[in-house]
């Protein structure tokens, strides 16, 4: 039995083997304008990690299932693994590297440290960016609401109660 590793769908029986055309993509990352030449198949996550060497944004699944890749686009939290960088041309992007100001940790970064809201640290940049996006929505939040709103960020180390406590601290409640 011969099997192609991929079952082909008619639309792309013979996908082009030629190099993909690269497009100029401008991203304003943490306030700095960056112009890259990227193939359309490069996700925003891979553009950040592989092309801008901003590896603070993590890849935990590459399929929108974990939240490790969360960044802020125009202040809104999104999963950067599920958008192509070309689609974000011109967008303002904030990553974990852009949260601290002049060497002073962002209140969420400080709160995560104070409350031991992580262990291995791999989900942490995504948790913090997600929380930053959540707080930017500007609504007061009960503890149940924080839990629900942060459920798109999986922490396999199981730091959830400390994550909730850290967010409460950053919201000005302790």
């Amino acid at each position: 039995m011969t099997q192609l590793q991929t079952t082909e769908v008619p639309a792309a029986k013979n996908p082009s083997l030629a190099p993909p055309d690269k497009l100029a993509v401008t991203l304003i990352v943490n306030g700095v304008e960056q112009t890259l030449r990227l193939a359309p198949w490069t996700t925003l996550l891979d553009a950040l990690r592989d092309h801008l060497n901003l590896t603070g944004t993590k890849k935990g699944c590459d399929h929108g299932q974990c939240g490790a890749c969360t960044v802020l686009v125009e202040g809104r939290r999104i999963n950067s693994c599920l958008t192509f960088a070309v689609m974000q041309d011109g967008a303002r992007i904030t990553t974990i590297e852009g949260l601290a100001r002049n060497g002073v940790l962002h209140p969420l970064q400080q709160a995560f440290t104070d409350h031991d809201a992580f262990q291995c640290g791999y989900c942490t940049p995504g948790q913090i960016c997600s929380a930053a996006g959540l707080l930017a929505e500007g609504k007061p939040l009960t503890r149940d609401e924080i839990r629900e709103a942060m459920s798109g960020n999986i922490c396999r180390c199981g730091a959830y109660p400390n994550i909730v406590a850290a967010i409460e601290q950053a919201m000005g409640r302790t």
Binding site: L99, F112, T113, F118
Partner: peptide, 11 residues
């Protein structure tokens, strides 16, 4: 607090 905390929360 973890001494590796700052490295982890800043990426």
């Amino acid at each position: 607090s973890r001494i590796d905390g700052p490295a982890k929360v800043t990426g």
